[in-house]
């Protein structure tokens, strides 16, 4: 590229003064601008981490590692332990994945391998629209429609049949960890489905043809050949879905009940890292309190950073492998 514009610079005559030539007719400036913009994106990632680290200094120094291992959150006593929120986030995300992974990969298989062409585009678009609905609308719908119409009956059923397990202990509440998990399942579904679909589509046809020619049924072809082939990409899709579930805020805050309940029951109201920040950030009346909330934000940031790095690496691997094999 450098040679091309250098060539362009040399092609013009004496009318060009030394300055424009030195700056390659503005190309140097242009390239500088592009590089600055690119660097600013990287700087943003670093700045977020730095700012969260700095702004949580008080809490980090006072509590150290106890912050993530103790469960005592009492702003009045100036005692902060984030364990209930971390557990709440992990529990709701787990519920979401248990449901969204099989359904999402099923959708991906249907869209990539089975659906006729006329169905593929519109249905794929509808699934993607699910990702476009703002999370506050999910929350509104979850709170007034989904919980009374679906979550509560399901919770009562689970409590009736399996109430002897601590996991499904009563009393049954509407807003609960289960409600948040189920709502999250719907919200992460499009992420998992659309990335997995792209993974399936990236698998070369030779894999399908070879396994069908060996006498595999269509399902055996999908399950025993395509899924292992694209496994790292599918894992990437799932992990990306997990990342979305961990960080989701408003919808979860609206349906989880916001209660420092320490029981194991999925049917009780709970709290997540994101929802405690949403609820208490503007009420944090002294610096340590605010710092503790920002530290929860820091944990959330580091968690999603790691998750995204792993997911992207996994997804990139499928793309690259397919590419090199196609060339070979």
């Amino acid at each position: 590229m450098a040679t091309q514009s250098h060539f362009a610079a040399r092609g013009s005559f004496a009318s060009v003064n030394r300055f424009t030539r030195a700056w390659q007719h503005g190309d140097r400036f242009y390239r500088l601008l592009l590089t600055l913009a690119a660097l600013s994106v990287l700087a943003l990632v670093i700045a977020i981490g730095y700012e969260l680290w700095q702004s949580s200094a008080l809490a980090r120094e006072k509590f150290g590692l106890d912050f993530i291992t103790t469960a005592d959150w009492d702003p009045v006593a100036e005692s902060f332990g984030a364990l209930p929120f971390i557990l709440g986030t992990l529990i709701t995300a787990a519920i979401a994945l248990v449901i969204a992974v099989p359904v999402g990969i099923g959708i991906a298989i249907f869209l990539a391998e089975l659906a006729p062409d006329w169905l593929r585009q519109p249905v794929g678009f509808l699934i993607e629209l699910l990702a476009a609905v703002p999370s506050v609308i999910y929350g509104l719908w979850g709170l007034f429609v989904f919980i009374p119409a679906f979550v509560k009956p399901v919770a009562q059923g689970l409590n009736g049949a399996l109430g002897f397990l601590p996991l499904f202990e009563g009393p049954v509440f509407g807003p609960s960890r289960l409600a948040a998990g189920l709502l999250l399942a719907i919200m992460v579904l499009p992420t998992i489905a659309s990335i997995s679909r792209d993974v399936f589509r990236a698998i070369p046809n030779s894999q399908r043809e070879a396994s069908l020619a060996l006498g595999a049924t269509r399902w055996e072809m999908i399950w025993e050949v395509l899924v292992p082939y694209g496994l790292s990409g599918l894992l990437g899709a799932i992990i990306l879905g997990l990342g979305r579930a961990l960080g989701e805020t408003v919808a979860v805050t609206m349906v989880i009940g916001n209660n420092l309940d320490l029981s194991a029951s999925l049917l009780h109201p709970g709290y997540t890292m994101a929802s405690i920040i949403a609820n208490e950030f503007t009420e944090a009346t002294y610096d340590l309190y605010l710092n503790a909330l920002i530290e929860i934000g820091l944990i959330l940031f580091v968690l999603t950073l790691i998750i995204n790095l792993i997911a992207r690496l996994l997804i990139w691997r499928v793309g690259r492998r397919t590419f090199t094999e196609a060339r070979a």
């Binding site: 994106v41 990287l42 943003l44 990632v45 700045a47 977020i48 700012e51 969260l52 702004s55 990306l240 990342g243 979305r244 961990l246 960080g247 989701e248 805020t249 994101a274 920040i277 949403a278 950030f281 909330l293 920002i294 934000g297 959330l300 940031f301 999603t304 950073l305 998750i307 995204n308 790095l309 997911a311 992207r312």
Partner: peptide
């Protein structure tokens, strides 16, 4: 990679930032 990572940062964390 950086843009992918930014798109994965929860919006509430962006809010704190």
């Amino acid at each position: 990679f950086g843009t992918d990572v930014i798109s994965g940062v929860p919006s509430i964390v962006m809010g704190i930032f």
